[in-house]
Amino acid sequence: MNLTVNGKPSTVDGAESLNVTELLSALKVAQAEYVTVELNGEVLEREAFDATTVKDGDAVEFLY
């Protein structure tokens, strides 16, 4: 899956889609429990991480 992460191209191997929690784990995001996630310009509530799917071509920003 090809994404733009914090403005840079990134690839997650072996996945066509992941939820936000899985993406944080796959990318080994440090202190993931404290990060705010913006997906395609929309800031996500932490409670929505498990239910929100990240797909090929999406833009993700991790805000600390």
Rank of each mutant, 00 (worst) to 15 (best):
T21S: 09
A48W: 10
D50E: 10
L27V: 03
F49H: 10
N2C: 13
L24Q: 00
A26K: 12
K55L: 06
V12A: 03
V12C: 08
E45R: 13
V60P: 04
Q31G: 13
E16S: 14
G57A: 04
K55N: 08
D56H: 07
L23M: 05
E47A: 13
L27H: 02
K8A: 08
A32T: 11
G41W: 04
K55W: 07
Y34N: 09
A51N: 13
E38I: 15
V37W: 01
S25D: 10
A32W: 13
E33N: 10
V5M: 05
L44K: 03
D50H: 08
Q31W: 15
L18Y: 07
E47R: 10
S17V: 11
V12D: 02
T36K: 09
T11C: 13
K28F: 07
S17P: 08
L44S: 00
S17R: 11
L39H: 03
F62R: 01
V29W: 07
L18T: 04
F62N: 01
V60N: 02
T11L: 11
A26H: 11
S25V: 14
A59G: 06
D13F: 15
K55Y: 11
S10K: 14
T4M: 13
E22Q: 13
Y64N: 08
S17I: 10
V35H: 04
L3R: 00
A30V: 11
V37K: 01
F49Q: 03
S10R: 15
L3S: 01
L39A: 01
A26I: 14
G7L: 03
V5E: 02
E47V: 08
N19T: 15
L27G: 00
V43S: 06
A48R: 11
T36E: 06
K28P: 02
T4S: 07
E38T: 15
V60R: 01
G57M: 04
D58M: 05
E47K: 10
K28N: 11
V5Q: 02
T11V: 12
E45I: 09
G7K: 05
A26L: 14
L3H: 02
D13P: 14
G57Y: 03
E16C: 13
M1R: 03
G57H: 05
S25G: 08
F49C: 03
T36M: 11
T11I: 13
A32Y: 10
G41D: 03
A30I: 11
A26E: 05
N2Q: 12
E42T: 13
P9Y: 08
E45P: 13
